[in-house]
Amino acid sequence: MALDRETFHAALVARHGAARQAKFDAARVAVCGLGGLGSNVSIALARAGVGHLHLIDFDRVEPSNLNRQQYAATQVGLPKAEALCANLAAINPFCDVVAETVRVTSENLAALLADDDVVCEAFDRAEAKAMLVSGVLEAFPEKPVVAASGMAGLASANAITTRRVAKRLYLCGDGATDVDDNLGLYGARVLVCAAHQATMILRLIDGADEP
């Protein structure tokens, strides 16, 4: 059965309250990187009824992604932005999704992210994370950034937290585990970190500024 927009929205208002849902409806969130973090963050935000999602990733779905990223085996080979856009449409057909297959660089990030209220850093390489976070905080005086550092391996999920580490920078993760240390990445633990990011993004949209 296809739901109409009014029924879908009424169900969100029933769970979240009209005032908070109105903030979610109006929000514009950029998700940079659509891997284990970004695909899960995007789904959590679409389910919450965030009105506008800007999905950005240059890569395609690979078999090695399927242990933790929200793609189907049938989507291997597709651009991640395109595949996730389709998956989000099945979850929340009323979310306004702009999906771009592009590599974010220090040169293009200001133009790419100009219209977004909140930026979610969801890359995998540490150097790319630092480039994006430093660039966004430098280019935009008001925009908050919710980033992730440390979710590799199978250590306790309880080590993963959200901290405010700079004026507009929120950092989710254990801050210590690095995928370069051959710890592996496990869907369940990456999902905990993604859930921290999604929760902080919803809190920022709602007007909170502490973790």
């Binding site: 284990g36 969801a122 995998d124 540490a126 550092s149 590799a152 580490v165 585990t177």
Partner: peptide, 10 residues
């Protein structure tokens, strides 16, 4: 001064 050093993985 606040210094954030990123770990890889995502």
């Amino acid at each position: 001064v606040e210094i954030v050093c990123f770990m890889g993985g995502g």
